[in-house]
């Protein structure tokens, strides 16, 4: 039986359910551009990019406004909020984004991705600025997501600790 293809970019990348593709490359090699093009290809179709479903996309910046609280941001993005995720990642729902550290803001973005129900995650340096404890929590969550049939494309500088297929730019 042939596997369903979720994302295909010519010969460069093919993403199947339950699979993880990590895009490696030095600064300026085009990792961010590639990921953004895939994530936005529903609205701005790119050459050779085929994507079956909408994707949950986490870029370097992801629409957080300094005056917003964590709760407001998640409610705007998802229409709902599960406080269990906030507790798990040691965040407070009424904390203002402007008062959080880079790492905490990144965790807000990760929580948004975790709570989204999309079958594809596209994550640009998801573990940047995040502390070791939260990194391990996220890797656990990502593993569970992949096991449940989800698929992810991740851009990273460092070797990603979960089994994956690699692409070098």
């Amino acid at each position: 039986m042939t596997k369903k293809i979720l994302v295909k970019i010519g010969e460069l990348l093919t993403l199947f359910p339950s699979s993880l593709v990590v895009v490696y490359g030095p600064n300026g090699s085009g990792k961010t551009t590639l990921l953004k093009k895939i994530a936005l290809s529903h609205v701005f179709p790119g050459e050779n990019i085929q994507i079956e479903f909408p994707a949950a996309y986490l870029g370097h910046k992801f629409g957080t406004k300094l005056s917003q609280s964590v709760k407001d941001y998640l409610l705007f993005c998802l229409g709902a909020m599960d406080p269990a995720y906030l507790t798990r990642y040691s965040l407070k729902e009424d904390a203002k984004i402007g008062e959080l550290s880079f790492g905490q803001i990144q965790k807000v973005g990760l929580i948004r991705i975790l709570m989204s129900k999309e079958p594809i995650w596209i994550l640009d340096e998801p573990l940047a600025h995040v502390d070791e404890v939260s990194k391990n929590l996220f890797l656990e969550d990502l593993n569970a997501y992949l096991a449940s049939g989800g698929a992810a494309i991740i851009a990273s500088h460092d070797t990603f600790p979960l089994p994956h297929e690699s692409i070098y730019l």
Partner: peptide
């Protein structure tokens, strides 16, 4: 909206 990634987020949600 461009600087803080809001446009990327909105378009990734299939907003036309």
């Amino acid at each position: 909206d461009l600087a803080d990634g809001s446009l990327d987020f909105l378009f990734s949600q299939k907003l036309s």
